[in-house]
């Protein structure tokens, strides 16, 4: 999985800035995408491209349970969020709804990857290659259940009875 990084060098990117509360009444996924990250970066919609990754600090997606947040990012073209840590409902919504991959990274990857860098992420090997700098980093492996739900393509396609 290859893509370019949009880096927000900060912690606690919350669901209110990812998709402000006034849009909670909107359930059209394409329209939600036009308001993604509006509370933090009004230019996001014009700069994001299909296949991009977002890189940010700790506690990404804190706050609300609104599934609008991973939906707005995913329908903007974002394939994965790389963060030092995630808030639990955002993390679970991203995986169970098969919207995007929440990838936990270490401080080395956070420091070593810059805005605009091109990455190649291999989740089978837990490896992130920074093609712009030729550096490689380890991602934190998904837990067993998360890995299986991702592999199945979301919670509804996951068959626990097969375990």
């Amino acid at each position: 999985m290859k893509g370019n990084v949009i880096k927000y060098d900060r912690d606690n990117i919350d669901t209110d800035v990812i998709i402000p509360g006034q849009y909670l009444k909107v359930h059209d996924y394409a329209e939600l995408a036009t308001h993604a990250m509006e509370g933090l970066d009004p230019d996001f919609h014009s700069k994001v491209k299909e296949g991009d990754f977002i890189l940010s600090g700790k506690n990404f997606g804190s706050g609300s349970s609104r599934e609008h947040a991973p939906i707005a990012l995913s329908h903007s073209g974002v394939k994965a969020i790389l963060a030092l840590s995630f808030a639990r409902i955002f993390y679970r919504n991203s995986v169970d709804g098969a919207f995007l991959l929440p990838i936990e990274i270490g401080q080395d990857a956070y420091d070593g990857i810059s805005d605009g860098d091109e990455l190649d992420i291999d989740i089978t090997r837990n490896e992130i290659k920074n093609l712009s700098t030729n550096q490689s980093y380890k991602m934190k492996p998904f837990s067993e259940i998360i890995g299986k739900i991702i592999e199945a393509g979301g919670l509804f396609k996951y068959k626990p009875e097969l375990d």
Binding site: R66, E67, I89, R92, D96, G97, G154, L155
Partner: peptide
């Protein structure tokens, strides 16, 4: 516990 739309649907 709070959950998102997909989980509530499930």
């Amino acid at each position: 516990v709070g959950l998102g739309h997909t989980d509530i649907a499930y």
